[in-house]
Simulated assay, not measured.
Amino acid sequence: MMSGAAKKETLVANVQPEPASHTVLGYGPDGYHKIAYTQWGEPDPERTVICVHGLTRNARDFDKLAGKLSANHHVLCPDVVGRGDSDWLKDHSHYTLDQFASDHRQVIARSGANAVDWIGTSMGGLIGIVLASEKKSPLRRLVINDIGPFIPVPAIRRIKDYLCVDPAFDSLDEAEEYFRKIYVQTLPMEDKDWQHYTRHGVRLDEQGKYRLHSDPKIGETIKRYWAFMHINLWSRWDRIECPVLVIRGEESDFLTESTAQRMATTGPKAEVITIPNIGHHPSLQSEEQMAMITDWLDRNAI
């Protein structure tokens, strides 16, 4: 029979530790703004990983993967400006890929590393493509989760209905129901993963209501021009020289099979892993999906 002390130790061991929280200043047309990030593991200029989330999410989506990587890496997970604990910009038209890339150059500089590994989900992958394409880029290895240099208009059309919204929830259960609906393609997710998504995906307002932990205006430009807008970064893709892993949901409308095939045969000639029965995007919460990343990093050690 397990003693009380042993039970306590087991419970503590099963609790995900909290990362350290820090900030760094970014700069743009609105002046300076705060970029928040979580830190896992001890500073190590030789083994630093930066994980960047998707369009409407935040740094805490990477808690599970970052915790695993932190056993032998220094891991930073930023909140892209307008999300999580980072500042909101005064002018929503300044939420651009160029601004996000500029901010993350500051995060890389703060890390103290001359070279970093980058793991980017959706929008985080686009930022990674931009940074990896630059001359003498500090990105040593790039992992892209379900995004590519080209995004078709239908994919942008699909997400426009939950951009620029500001729902109010009376409870975390109500908020969780909302997240389960709009992120229905993000798999696999256990109940505890949805609870984690929800807990860190909302904030309390002055009236005690739960609201999304992001600026409702982050997608204003996308929503306004969705009918003809697409993203094309092929010219940048062709300039990338570091090893690249692409993880793709088989049913993804953001990263189509044809785009993934082109990514595998042009530019850095990425290794592509397609996960069946998943849309946009793989959650990176399962042991299997996390192992795809850790194993690839080990195989491509530089």
Rank of each mutant, 00 (worst) to 15 (best):
F150D: 01
H22L: 07
M189K: 08
D215P: 01
D170Q: 13
D173S: 13
D103I: 03
I278V: 12
K64D: 13
S171F: 02
D103Q: 03
L233T: 05
E241K: 12
D238F: 08
A132D: 00
E241Q: 08
N277S: 10
I144F: 12
S93R: 15
G31W: 02
G219D: 00
L187R: 15
I275G: 03
S86V: 06
Y95W: 14
T48N: 04
E174H: 12
K160P: 07
G28E: 05
V184G: 06
P138C: 13
D215S: 00
I35W: 12
D63T: 03
H94S: 13
R236K: 12
T38N: 13
N114P: 11
G31N: 08
A132I: 00
S3K: 04
L172G: 10
V244G: 00
L172A: 14
I240V: 01
Q39E: 15
A227Q: 07
C164G: 15
L297T: 01
I119H: 02
T96H: 10
I293Y: 01
I275P: 00
I127W: 09
T38D: 10
C77M: 02
D295L: 00
A115M: 08
V153F: 08
K8M: 13
T265P: 01
R158Y: 15
K64I: 12
M1G: 11
A66W: 00
P19Y: 02
H280K: 04
I182D: 11
M229T: 14
T198H: 12
L25N: 10
L65M: 02
D79Q: 10
A5W: 15
V12E: 13
R105Q: 14
K160D: 01
R239M: 09
L25Q: 08
A36K: 03
I231T: 07
H196D: 12
Y178N: 01
D79K: 10
N58Q: 11
